[in-house]
Amino acid sequence: MSLNQKRRVFLKGSLAVGALGAAAGLITPGAVLAAWNKNAFTAKSIDEAIAASNGQPVTTPSTDITIKAPDIAENGAVVPVSVATKMKGVDSITLLVEKNSTPLSAVFHLPKGTLPDVSTRVKMGKTGDVIAVVKANGKLFSARKGVKVTIGGCGG
């Protein structure tokens, strides 16, 4: 496949999405019914946030959880983070940023059939850990990855 062809297919794909979305409007925002966990997202400490989002604060550190995040953030406001695990029976993945004033960033509820492998981007005010909590078969496991947030410049 030539590059030009690749480009064309890609464009066509994007257009199709737009057209269909506009016409069908299949799910309305009102249909999003999950109850947003206010207590968890306003909690000031890691333990409180984990307890409020996962039922209890105690987690078992696990090397089976892989957190992909940069060693040094290119932009503290946009730090890409991926969490994946080979564990079976994962119900949810919770993402926290250690040094943020409210550490809880996101909870991903994963129905059966969805792989425990999610990516998003978070804000980090300063150097610290990104923490992932995996709920699998009712048990909590966790892992951490340090991310340095720097002023930048003066290199090279």
Binding site: I72, A73, E74, N75, T150, G152, G153, C154, G155, G156
Partner: peptide, 21 residues
């Protein structure tokens, strides 16, 4: 390539690219 280019040098010239070791 230099892993920390968008940190040591301006990200604004190359906004679409991300580096790292």
């Amino acid at each position: 390539a230099f892993p920390y280019t968008p940190i040591a040098n301006p990200q604004r010239f190359i906004p679409d690219w991300t580096f790292g070791i």
